[in-house]
Every structure is written in C-alpha cells, then in structure tokens.
C-alpha cells in the first residue's frame, strides 16, 4: 500500500521581501527516494527546514509522516532524520562522541549504540579516526561524519540536503548503496536535494525547482522524455548552424564551437545528416537527453552546477575560516 509520507500544499515562505518558497505542492510516497533539483537559492533548503520543523511557513500546509509540521512538531521530529547542508557537528567533541550524543538524543536503545556507531563509521571510512576531535578533520571528513550521524538512527523519513557535496565518487557510491539498502530493509523514505545530475538519477521522482516554484515533478525517465528526442551535437564550418536550421526546421543552440539541437531519433538522423552536409560537418555526437537538458528546457537556464559548486566551496571555506 502506498501512502503519502510527505504532503505539501501551497507552501510559502517569505523572508522579508524575498519569497524563498513560492506555493509549492508535492507528495512523496512511502519508500520513495525523492529528489529536489534546483540552482542556488531556489528554496530547497528552506523547504527542508520547514518540513523538519526548524522554520515556520508563512502560509500553506505541510505534513510529514501524517503530522502537521506546525501543529505537531514533536511528532514530526520523532519521525525524521536530517543531514544539513551546513555543518552541524560539535568540533570540540570526537567523532564517536558526536555520534553518541546523537544516539542519546534520539533515544536509541543503549544495547545498539556500539554496533550502530561502528557500522556508520565504517560506512564513511572514519573508523580509524573515531577518537579524534572533529576539529582536526578535513572538510570532507566532517561531511562524511555528518552523513554517518544522519544514518545512525533509522528514521521513517530521511532528509538529505546536498549530502554528498564535495565527496569523492567512491564515498558517494558507498553512501548511496547504504541509503538504498535502508530503503529496502526499513522502507525509509528519502527526501534529498542535489546539484549532481548523476545523483538525481538515483531518485524515483524528481521535482525541478527554480525561484521557489516547482517547474515539474516526475520520474527521471519521464522528465527526459519531455525533451522530445536525442540531443545532436555537431561541429563544422561557420555557416553550418544557419544551414541546419533551414534544412531541418530545428532550434539550434551554439555552445562554444558546437551546435546543439534536438532530433526525435538521433541514430537514424546521423546518415541523413552525413548525406546532406558531406564535407561541411567535422564531427557528430548523439546524446541521450540528460537531466541537465531537462533543467535547461524547463527553466531556460542551466543549473549552473559549476558555479554552484564553487560558490558552495567558498561558503564552506568562509565557514571554516570563521571557525578558527
């Protein structure tokens, strides 16, 4: 039986005259991995904070695990786990003490402490550093510990706000495996935000959000089908773009020296292209549509993944600096 574990209706959050969340509507079913995809400042973290009872919405309604986030914050907190985007560890405690602290606050049975703590530390490869002060950890190690802590108690709903930002692919994969196993074994519902397109592919459903509004919600496959075919990337002489536009009646985009356009069936189109423009085309690529393309199409701009990461890095650096 599928039930809505997260239910959001016309959710609005204003900070002064900034509307961070602008009338969001969504449902997440039990056991789903739900992804929130959007550029910086889209309102992803704000939505998570509202769902996690840390911020009160300006208007609208949200319920998690059947409990209203404003009326029943305690019941909501009992049902959720959360990995924050920004650091939330106590760096004057050791890795193990941070986990112990969490286990106490979440009322884990003390018989489970040792085993759980060891498990999550192994998962994020910090078992050797369990007795080191968090202050002595690198940025990536802190991030890993943060995730380990989020996985320590097994909540009904797990919120992950850009969980794997700045982690190496190996660690990212290990974490994904664990999250999926949790979902299989415990039916955990996962609500996550991300900048990484590859990561969004793991989700059962994705909401594309921009400027506080949801642009589309669907499975990754369905979203990509919206694009209407494959992306063809060609390079060639100067007038090629114009000629292609006239010949095939398509919208072309110039990206550097490359020309991008969409075609219903890329593989069958290639021979025609070669026949029609022999000598003028230097290279041809056919690409399956990616979520990046989806994002571009829905919002009219790219997710600025590159820019995003460097901004995040700066933010993290600023934090580290302040901390000294």
């Amino acid at each position: 039986m599928l039930t809505d574990v997260i239910h959001v209706e016309n959710l609005v959050k204003k900070f002064g005259n900034i509307t961070a969340v602008d009338g969001i509507q969504l449902d997440v079913q039990s056991g789903q991995i739900f992804g929130f995809l959007g550029p910086n400042g889209a309102g992803k973290s704000t939505t998570i904070k509202i769902l996690a009872t840390l911020v009160k919405p300006t208007s609208g309604r949200a319920a998690v695990a059947g409990f209203d986030v404003v009326a029943k914050p305690n019941e909501v907190r009992q049902s959720i786990g959360l990995v924050f985007q920004d650091q939330s560890l106590d760096d004057r405690l050791t890795a193990q003490e941070n986990l112990w602290f969490h286990a106490m606050l979440y009322d884990l049975p003390s018989t489970l402490f040792a085993e759980r703590i060891e498990n999550v530390l192994r998962l994020v490869d910090l078992i050797d550093r369990r007795h080191s002060l968090v202050r002595t950890f690198s940025g990536g190690m802190k991030r890993r510990l943060e995730i380990a802590r989020g996985l320590l108690h097994h909540p009904k709903v797990l919120f992950l706000d850009e969980p794997t930002l700045g982690l190496d692919p190996q660690t990212r994969n290990a974490i994904w495996k664990h999250v999926k196993a949790l979902r299989e074994e415990k039916g955990t519902t996962v609500f996550m935000t991300t900048h990484y397109m590859e990561e969004a592919e793991h989700c059962d459903k994705i909401a594309v959000i921009d400027h506080g509004k949801i642009q589309a919600i669907d499975s990754p496959a369905m979203l990509k089908r919206m694009i209407g075919g494959d992306t063809i990337i060609v390079s060639g002489d100067d007038g090629l773009a114009e000629s292609l536009k006239r010949a095939y009646n398509v919208e072309v985009q110039k990206v550097g020296s490359e020309i991008h356009f969409q075609m219903a069936s890329g593989a069958e189109f290639v021979p025609k292209l070669i026949a029609g423009f022999a000598g003028r085309v230097k290279s041809i690529q056919v690409k399956q549509p990616s979520l990046e393309d989806v994002f571009l199409k829905l919002t009219g701009h790219s997710i600025r993944a590159q820019e995003g990461t460097s901004q995040d890095q700066m933010r993290q650096m600023a934090q580290l600096w302040r901390r000294r």
């Binding site: 996690a52 009872t53 840390l54 305690n74 907190r77 009992q78 959720i80 959360l82 924050f84 939330s88 560890l89 106590d90 969490h102 606050l105 979440y106 009322d107 802590r149």
Partner: peptide
Amino acid sequence: LKEVLVAP
C-alpha cells in the same frame, strides 16, 4: 544548535 533543535 540545529542538531539539537531538530532532535525529538
């Protein structure tokens, strides 16, 4: 503080 405030 967030860790504490979000705890049940």
